[in-house]
Structure formats: structure tokens, C-alpha cells
Simulated scan of single mutants.
Amino acid sequence: MAGKLTKRRVDAAKPGETIWDGEIKGLGVRVWASGARSYVLKYRRGGVQRWLTIGVHGDGWTPEKARSEAERLKAKIRDGLDPALEAKADREADSFDLFADRYLKDYAALHKKASTAKEETRALKNHIRPALGKYRVKDIQRGDIARFHQSMKETPYAANRYLALLSHMFNIAEDWGLRPENSNPCRRVKKYKEIARERFLSPDELARLGGALSHAEKFGESPYVTAAIRLLLFTGARLSEILTLRWEFVDLDAGFLRLPDSKTGAKTIALPAPAKEILSTLPRQSDNPHVICGAKRGAALVNLQKPWRRIRTEAGLADVRLHDLRHSFASVAAAGGMSLPLIGSMLGHSQPQTTARYAHFADDPRQAAANSVAASIAASMSGGKARIIPMRKRG
């Protein structure tokens, strides 16, 4: 009977030969024509003989290590498991690409807004899949995520958004049994610091923008383009809310836009007089249900960015984004003394802290008090009668 496998026996084996361990039944070494030596375990399961490769001799595997692994595998066989089938399933485990397909079909399409699912599809296609697509979901580690995040350091806001998407996806992978519980590789990957960009138009800039819009209309710009920009300013609505607005959502008599869905769910937007005038005079197309019509028959305007760049350049506002028009609406409201809850209601904010960014535009009561005290002191010092300046009541 052959003795147990040793390094000397394994090294001495000839190509085409299989040698067996004398102590652990089924453990052997197969020598290939190339000279490579593989540790194998032969066993029967359900009346079928199976061969399972344990590892390659010299590639981190020794006879002692192979023997220990063979004992572990035989214990699983005694428990009714089949290590060969487990190994096959492991080799065929979902790649991130396959998982992403399933995520978009079985989760995003069912549980997320269509616009959000579309954004996630684009992010996966253009950025995440090229970096992680070929990895198996179960094998992705924190270092892989950190390298991907680091590769996008020039666009930190996008990098953080994609990190959040990946974290959510790996939580889903755990729910689906594709990864062990509490194994999310995005944990402790530090996000880039984000500095909120707040750009608001001053009265002078608003006047310049108005002039640029009038100039654009005079020289052939689409009335739907200029109407969209004005509606953004006069209502504080989000860009997507204006571009997807349908006439059935417009209630001119009551003065509201009644949106069945938005970023924060169903939403009602008040229409001030300037906005009502725009909608009252805007041409309607009989075969198009959208308020802001695009060039394609029956379709909405898809991209406002290109005409906006022309108009903002004409106005000398090269750094102003379309979203800044919404900020400008809110800043004018705050400077006019409107309460933050009211502003949040007009904008459709779901969280009070989102509106809090505009608090500094409201008059600070300490400033009014200081003005009153200083005016009294100055009047006394000049020999005049002190005049107390009444403080404005806040709504």
C-alpha cells in the first residue's frame, strides 16, 4: 500500500501518472503532460463518481495543506453535501454585469421612479460597469470600490453619487443571497467633501437675463425655450417638472400646476400672475399634450441646456446653471420676509433642512435691533432727538 503523499513522491511522479495518498482515501495527485501537478479528490455522490481539483502543487499547495483540505471536503460529503457542485456554482456566480442587469429589471424598474432608473442605468453603463462589470459580485472588496471612487476624484460629486448607488446595490445583493450578510464593500469608503454651490441671481442679473430672453425671442428662439426658462424663474419648479409638464396638469382658473408625480411625490405648484400670462399666451399644439414642446412631433422638449448656454452667454451669466433659477426664486422669497416653511412648501421640499440654506437671505432681527440702538445713540450724540426705528414684524 502506498504511503502518504510527500513532496518527494509528488516531485518524482511522471507525466500522465496519478499517485494516491495511503491515508486519506480518494486524495491523489495527477501529473499533466505539461508537468503541472494537481491535488485531486475522487469520491462518489449519488452513485456518480466525481473528481474535484483541490489545487496546484507549488502554487500555495503542499501535500500537508492538500491533506487538510481533503479532510474538510470529506466531512462535507459525509454531511450530504457535494463539493464539486458547490465549486461549479462558485465558478458560475453572478458577475457584477449580470447582477446589474437583474437589479435594473427586478428592483429599479419596480421600486424607483422611471427618471431615477434611467439615471442609474446611465451611471452603470458609462462609469460603474466598465470598472467592476467582470468581477464576481461575491468577490468585490472594499479596495476595489475605493479604487473606483478614487478614479473619479476629478468629479467628486458624481463619485459620491455612484458610491451611494453601489452601496444600495450591494445591500440588495445581500438580500438576494449573492453576498454574506453585513459584507457591503462600500462601508468605510470615505466620501469626498462636498461644498454646496449656491448661485443666486441679483436684481441686476435678473434684468440682464430678461433682456437676453427678449433678444433671443426677437431673433427666432423657440417660444417654448424662453417660456420654460421664465417658468423656472417664476415658479421655482424643478427643470424636470417644467419639461415634462402636460396641459392636463395646468389649472389656470385656480392658478395651480397639479403634478401627479415629482421627485417628492404628487405636488401642487402655485402659479403667480407672470407664470399664468406665459401659459395663457403659449401656443398649444393639437397633437402634443406637453406644454413645452420639442422639435419632434408630439414630444416634449428634451434638452434645454444648449439654448440655455446661448442665452446665458448673451446675458453675461456664464456660470449660472438652470437649477440656479430655482435657487434664485427661493432667495428672493427669503429676502422678502417669507417664512422658511412657506418657501419649502412652494419648492416642494420634503425636509426642512433643505430649505434652511436660504435662511441667511432673511433679515436678521439682531441687525434690525442694532440699527435701532445705533440710530438712537447717533441722534443723542448729534444733539437731536433720539428716533427709535420700529422693528418689522416677521411672518
Rank of each mutant, 00 (worst) to 15 (best):
A237C: 10
G255E: 12
A273Q: 11
D253N: 06
E248S: 15
D261T: 14
E277W: 07
F249E: 12
H290Q: 10
S240T: 03
T281E: 14
A237N: 01
K276W: 08
V250C: 07
L259M: 13
L252N: 04
Q285F: 15
L271W: 02
P274M: 13
I269F: 00
G265C: 08
T244W: 05
K276E: 12
P274Y: 12
L245K: 06
S286R: 15
P289L: 13
I269N: 00
T268D: 14
L279C: 15
R238C: 05
T268A: 00
P283A: 11
E241C: 09
I278P: 00
F249D: 11
G265H: 10
E241Y: 01
P283Q: 14
R258S: 04
T268C: 02
A275Y: 02
I242W: 00
S240A: 15
R238V: 08
E248K: 12
R246T: 14
L243W: 06
A237P: 02
H290F: 14
S286F: 08
S286V: 15
L282M: 05
L279D: 10
K263Y: 07
F256R: 06
K276Q: 14
L257H: 02
G236P: 04
E248F: 02
T281L: 10
S240I: 07
G255L: 08
T281V: 08
W247C: 12
G236V: 09
P260E: 09
D287C: 05
G255T: 14
V291F: 10
P272G: 09
Q285K: 15
L282S: 00
R258G: 01
D287Q: 09
P289Q: 13
L252T: 06
F249C: 12
G236L: 13
R246V: 14
T244Q: 14
P283F: 11
P272D: 08
T268N: 12
F256Q: 00
S262Q: 03
A270R: 08
L252G: 04
L259A: 02
L239D: 01
P283Y: 14
F249K: 01
R246H: 09
F256G: 00
N288V: 10
L239A: 05
S240D: 06
L259G: 03
E241P: 02
K276I: 15
R284E: 12
L245P: 07
A273D: 12
G236D: 05
T244S: 12
L257C: 01
T244K: 08
P283N: 11
V250Q: 02
P289W: 15
R238S: 07
D287Y: 09
T244M: 06
L271G: 05
L257S: 04
Q285M: 11
A270M: 01
A266W: 00
L259C: 04
W247G: 09
R258Y: 00
F249S: 09
S262A: 10
N288W: 05
T244I: 03
L282K: 07
V250W: 04
T281H: 14
L271V: 08
P289C: 14
A237V: 01
I278W: 04
